[in-house]
């Protein structure tokens, strides 16, 4: 134990380092030090490895240091979209962000995503976000009898909305949008991405129903092309571009 600093790194060994996590916390029931509902910062210093992600650090805190820390995660592999949080002031998935990419020499700040009510620590109430998604009717709308086989589509027709099918509904885009922060009535980027996926689908016939909804005063016209959503999306969806395509469809009347 004495000579750890000089100990040579074995071949194949992953280097380890100390990292400080500065986490914004809130307990609705209160703690001995903090009244109910108060938001405060708490720092944890951990020894982590170069292959560890922010989620691994959060696990280490929850499992070994402070079991009261609350955060969401399900698959832990960037597919379910449960663990979006504000890491060093940018919305990211904790399971897709390596600690070593965040400059571990300085404290790493972790906050819940902004614009949605915090329930506890890093958990927010996602209901307003899901309500917006429901409003744009995210399901196939067709007329006429159901065909006996698949509804066919050419690769070109598919390519038009391919980008927006990648959405995992993590809310990183919507909660990075400055318009959504100030006006919770705005549908938000994710709902527009969800609508885009059906509006530009050649098999769907409900495009004008959705476009009318997005023509609302809380709809696409609230977008100021800040590009925060495009930057935040962990799936690399070009969100602002999708929103502009919806605007263009409304202005030209052609889908």
């Amino acid at each position: 134990m004495t000579a750890t600093a000089e100990a040579p790194t074995k071949a194949g060994e992953v280097p380890s380092f100390d990292v400080t996590l500065r986490i914004q916390r809130m307990d609705p029931d209160g703690t001995p030090d903090h009244p109910a509902g108060e938001e405060y910062w708490e720092e944890f210093t951990l020894t982590m490895h170069g292959t560890d992600r922010v989620l691994d650090a959060l696990h280490k805190i929850k499992w070994d240091v402070d079991g009261s820390l609350a955060f969401r995660r399900s698959c832990a592999h960037g597919v379910c979209g449960s663990d979006a949080m504000r890491i060093n002031a940018k919305n990211r998935l904790a399971c897709k962000t390596l600690l070593k990419d965040l400059n571990p020499k300085r404290p790493i700040t972790i906050e819940p995503i902004k614009g949605l009510p915090v329930e506890k620590d890093l958990i927010v109430d996602m209901e307003p976000f899901f309500a917006s998604y429901r409003e744009i009717m995210p399901f196939l709308m067709t007329s006429g009898p159901t065909p006996e086989r698949e509804r066919l589509q050419s690769p070109e027709e598919r390519a038009r909305f391919d980008d927006t099918t990648k959405c995992i509904m993590c809310a990183a885009c919507t909660t990075s949008c400055p318009v959504f922060w100030t006006d919770g009535q705005y549908f938000g980027p994710q709902a527009i991405v969800g609508a885009h996926r059906f509006i530009f689908d050649s098999r769907d016939e409900g495009e004008w129903d959705r476009l009318e909804i997005l023509n609302d005063k809380a709809g696409v016209w609230k977008c100021r092309t800040a590009f925060n959503c495009t930057e935040a999306c962990p799936r690399g969806i070009e969100v602002t571009k999708a929103i502009s395509e919806v605007k263009k469809a409304l202005n030209t009347g052609a889908v």
Partner: peptide, 20 residues
């Protein structure tokens, strides 16, 4: 039934005209 969070629809594409 879950209520939509927004009240009322737009007035005659006012926001679209404003944007244009």
């Amino acid at each position: 039934p879950l209520r939509p969070i927004r009240s009322g629809r737009s007035r005659n594409h006012a926001e679209q005209w404003s944007w244009l």
